[in-house]
Amino acid sequence: MSASRGLDRPVAEPRSLIAPAWGWYLLFFLVPLGFIVLYAFAMNDPNRFFVVRFGLQTAQFERLWDPIYLRIYLDTLVMALSGTIGCLVIGYPFAYFIATKVRQHRTLLLLLVIVPFWTSLLIRTYAWVIILGEQGPLSEFLQRIRVLSNPLNILYTPTAVWIGVVYDYLPLMVFPLYVTLERLDRTLIEASRDLGEGKWGTFRRVTLPMTLSGVMTGCLLTFIPMMGEYVVPEILGGAKSFLVGSLVANQILTAGDWPFGAALAMGLIIVLLLVIVAYLRVVGRRAEENLGAAL
C-alpha cells in the first residue's frame, strides 16, 4: 500500500529539494552582491583613513566616466575578446576532430582536456613564467633552431597575458563545441556534399550555422571570466597592464577605497549582463540546453 502511494506522490516537495541551492545562492551570492551595491553607493570619509560613510551617493559612479577608467574597461574588453577568439580558433578544430574523427579514444581525449584542472591555476600560471622567460626553454629552443636571434622577449607583455588566458580557458570552449558537434546530424553534411557543395562551403553553410549555438556558449563561458581576470595579468603581465580585475583589487587592497572598488565591480557586472542578454537574444531557447550539456 505504501509502495503504491509512493508512486502516486512525489518523493519530496520540489521546494525542499531546491532549498539547499537557494540557501547557497542567498548566502554566498546574493548577500555579497548586496554588500557590493551597498558599498558602491557609499563614500570614504575624506578626513579619516578607510572609514566608509554609507548613504546614497552617486559620486563613485561619476568617477567611472573618467577617461582613464573607461580606457581600462576598453583594454579589458579587447583582451577578453581577443582571448575568446584565440580559444575559438584553437578549440573549434580540436572539438571537431574529437567529435568527428576520433572513434576509440574519445573519452580519453576529453579527459585529457580536463587534466590541467587537477593542478591549481596559480601554479600553472607560474609555470608559464618559466616557459616564456628570457632564459626559458621556449626561448632557448627558438634560438637553437634559429627562429630567433635574440632571447624571446614576451614575458610581462600583453602577448604573455593573452597566451595565459587562452591556455586557462580553452577547456571551457572545447566542451560546449564538442557537445554541439557530436550531436550534429552527419547526414546533412553528406547531403550538402552530394549536392555539389565543397568542403569549405559545407562547413561554412551547414556545419558552422548548425553549431553556432555551441560557438556562442563557448564564447560566453570564456569571455565572462576573462573580463574579470586577475591572476594572469598580475603574474604573466608583470602587474603592468591594468585590467578591471586588477583595478578593483588595487582599489580595495592598496588604495583602501572599498566604495570605488565596489562601483567598478558593479560596472563590470553591468557590462557582463549586457553581453549575456545579447547572447540570449542570439542563441535563444537553445541556450539552456547548451549550457546544461556543456557544464
Binding site: R71, I72, A239, S241, L247, N250, A255, G256, D257
Partner: peptide
C-alpha cells in the same frame, strides 16, 4: 593617499 593612488592608476594604465 588618494592623490597617489590616482597617479598610480594613470601609471599602470
Amino acid at each position: 593617499l588618494a592623490l597617489r593612488n590616482e597617479a598610480w592608476t594613470k601609471f599602470k594604465a
